[in-house]
């Protein structure tokens, strides 16, 4: 008898679930934007009467997939991304009826190459990074050879004779994508003939410039940046690649290498002189505005000076703010629900 009641109750619950309307905003997307997005969500929940949004960290690509899956309360309202939306993703969205999207640029994130505080300081160029971490490297006479560099001294005579050992994020990570595009490709392009190759054979160019070595010089350290900080303190020979906020929080344990002579410091990333930095975004599904309560207010909170301004709480979390002019522009377009056009 009891079993019957329980079963009936479970079935009832299942159907109740199907009819359940959503009163909190659902946000998915990049793990890099996650710390900022959650801070805004929390402040938004505390300041306004709305329910606190639910934020999931799915990665930029995973977020886009969920976001573009359709319109309706079963699908997320906002997705975060540590890169711009791709045209293929816009098409996927359009195919599923997600036509009007508002794009909001949030700020910048610097990618730092750090080592233990007591280890020697490195001054790296993009070319050094590329030569240390690529699988194949170009020679001056136009050929690709397997990367022969074992120590940093092999890469550049001014660097210490320490074995190359760089901990970094796995291929699924947006940080890795950005590092490969900004640092490795940047270094790769310094070879004149490779730069010309880009026009002739794009695939060969990409393979050569984007492929990370797999012989132990580059170590996949997983997505947990705290773990990398711990590994650096126990191994002073290793370097690691992670987001600026982790350097900011652990500046007593690790220090960032200068890249092209520029140190990974707040001001230098903000004004664009630090070369390995990228823009962060979020995307709003316009069809959900008015259906799920609070979306416009959430966007307003994110784009307020108290949040993303020079002294806003997001900078405490490690976000590098945009310039005043850029902030004014993006906050105006966010308020007007400007439609994304590629």
């Amino acid at each position: 008898m009891i079993k019957k009641v329980v079963l009936a109750a479970s079935v009832a619950m299942v159907f109740a679930g199907a009819a359940h309307a959503r009163d909190q905003i659902q946000i998915v997307g990049s793990s890099t934007v996650f710390p900022f997005s959650t801070a805004v969500a929390e402040a938004f929940g505390q300041k306004t009467g709305f329910a606190t949004p639910v934020v999931e960290s799915t990665g930029s690509g995973g977020g886009m997939k969920l976001f573009c899956a359709g319109v309706g309360t079963g699908h997320p309202d906002i997705t975060n991304a540590s890169r711009r939306i791709k045209s293929s993703e816009v098409e996927l969205c359009a195919k599923n009826g997600v036509a009007d999207i508002t794009e909001v640029k949030v700020g910048y994130d610097g990618i730092v190459i750090a080592n233990a505080i007591e280890a020697p300081a490195y001054d790296l160029s993009l070319r050094d990074l590329y030569l240390a971490l690529a699988k194949d490297i170009p020679t001056e006479d136009g050929k690709w050879i397997p990367n022969p560099n074992k120590t940093w001294k092999d890469v550049n005579a001014s660097l210490p004779a320490v074995k190359i050992e760089v901990l970094g994020p796995p291929p699924t990570s947006g940080t890795r994508d950005a590092f490969v595009e900004l640092a490795m490709e940047g270094g790769c392009k310094t070879f004149g003939w490779v730069k010309d190759l880009k026009k002739k054979d794009k695939n060969a160019y990409k393979t050569g410039c984007h492929t990370v070595r797999e012989d132990g010089g580059y170590v996949d350290a997983g997505e947990n940046d705290n773990l990398m900080v711990q590994k650096l303190t126990s191994n002073p020979d290793a370097l690691a690649i992670f987001g600026f906020s982790f350097l900011d929080q652990n500046a007593d344990k690790v220090k960032g290498a200068t890249v092209g002579g520029v140190a990974p410091e707040f001001e230098l990333i903000a004004d664009g002189s630090y070369p390995v930095s990228r823009a962060l975004f979020f995307y709003v599904k316009q069809a959900h505005i008015g259906v799920v309560p609070g979306i416009e207010e959430y966007v307003a909170e994110f784009t307020s000076e108290a949040a993303w301004g020079n002294e806003g709480y997001l900078t405490d979390k490690g976000l590098i703010p945009m310039s005043d002019a850029e902030r004014a522009e993006w906050s105006a377009s966010a308020k007007g629900n400007a439609k994304l056009s590629m």
Partner: peptide, 17 residues
């Protein structure tokens, strides 16, 4: 199924996030 998420509000029942 989206339960690996940042959720501030205390859930009031099995239907809340």
């Amino acid at each position: 199924i989206g339960m690996v998420a940042f959720i501030v509000d205390l859930p009031g029942g099995p239907l809340d996030p």
